[in-house]
Deep mutational scan, measured.
Amino acid sequence: MTEYKLVVVGAGGVGKSALTIQLIQNHFVDEYDPTIEDSYRKQVVIDGETCLLDILDTAGQEEYSAMRDQYMRTGEGFLCVFAINNTKSFEDIHHYREQIKRVKDSEDVPMVLVGNKCDLPSRTVDTKQAQDLARSYGIPFIETSAKTRQGVDDAFYTLVREIRKHKEKMSKDGKKKKKKSKTKCVIM
């Protein structure tokens, strides 16, 4: 069974824990209790493949930012979460993405942009803004509501699919490099 290491990042209060708990335990946590770091595991079937999701729910508070490099190193894919009623959390996505790329030393890291709290009427981040940002990053965008469960499975499952595509691409690139290195030079 394939294991996928997913990391949920975003500013404090955007609903990272609520999304994760909704996926794992099928219930909505409405009281806000700032996370330092929590880890969850769940076995699911995605596109006919049974897999184990190892999900790291991270601290959004700035005082825990020193811990970010460590979990970013171990993560295979990242859910970059903002709240649709919090423009600052949307603007912060850029910083999370840049930090992930720096730590992973790669421009090509599996990510999904997630606009959470889409059940709320007080939207300050337009869907088109988020779609445009995701398009500019070359990553999928999904709106979710941890409260109603809308888009929750889709967000995590899409990230797994992005990781699969990335692994497939990397193995193809690896095979191309191996083929090239088999060419021999004969000096007579």
Rank of each mutant, 00 (worst) to 15 (best):
D119E: 12
V125D: 12
V114M: 07
V103H: 09
Q70M: 07
V125Y: 10
T74A: 13
M67I: 10
R123K: 12
S122N: 12
S106Q: 08
V114K: 00
S106V: 11
V103Q: 05
P121N: 13
D126L: 07
V125A: 12
K104Y: 07
D69Q: 07
T124P: 12
Y71F: 07
E76V: 15
V103L: 10
K88E: 11
S122R: 07
D119A: 04
A66W: 14
S65E: 11
P110H: 03
E63R: 03
G77A: 14
N116C: 15
T74W: 10
T124C: 11
F82W: 07
V114Y: 00
N116S: 13
R97W: 15
D126Y: 08
F90T: 09
D105P: 05
P110N: 02
A83C: 04
E98F: 00
K104R: 14
N116E: 05
R68F: 03
R68C: 03
Y64N: 04
D69I: 00
L120Q: 13
D119V: 02
Y64E: 01
T74Y: 11
K104L: 10
R97E: 10
D69K: 06
D119I: 02
S122G: 14
S122C: 11
V112A: 03
P121C: 08
Y71K: 14
K88C: 11
R68N: 05
A66R: 08
S122D: 13
M67H: 06
M72V: 04
L79I: 14
S122T: 11
E91V: 05
D69P: 10
R123I: 09
V112D: 00
K88W: 12
E107F: 12
F90G: 05
V114T: 02
I100P: 00
F82Y: 10
D126R: 06
Q70F: 05
E107G: 10
V103R: 08
G115L: 13
Q70V: 08
M72F: 05
V109M: 07
L79G: 00
I84L: 15
K88G: 11
D105R: 07
C80I: 13
E98L: 02
T124Q: 12
N116L: 14
P110V: 03
D126S: 10
I84F: 14
M67G: 09
P121K: 14
G77V: 13
M67E: 03
V103Y: 06
V114W: 01
L113E: 00
V125E: 14
S65R: 09
A83L: 01
E107I: 10
P121V: 11
R73Q: 11
T74K: 15
V114E: 00
F90V: 13
K117D: 11
T74Q: 14
M111W: 06
M67V: 05
G75F: 08
A66V: 10
Y64L: 03
L120E: 14
R68Q: 06
K101I: 07
Y64T: 04
Q70A: 13
R102N: 06
M67N: 11
S65A: 12
C118I: 10
L120Y: 06
K104I: 09
M111D: 00
M67C: 06
P110I: 03
T124A: 13
Y96E: 02
D108T: 08
D69H: 07
M67P: 04
H95L: 04
K104V: 11
V112M: 04
R73S: 11
V125N: 12
L113Y: 07
T124V: 10
D108Y: 07
C118E: 10
K101N: 07
V109F: 11
D69C: 03
R97V: 15
S122V: 09
H95G: 09
D126A: 09
T87R: 07
N116Q: 14
E107H: 09
D105E: 10
V112Q: 01
C118T: 11
L113H: 00
S122F: 08
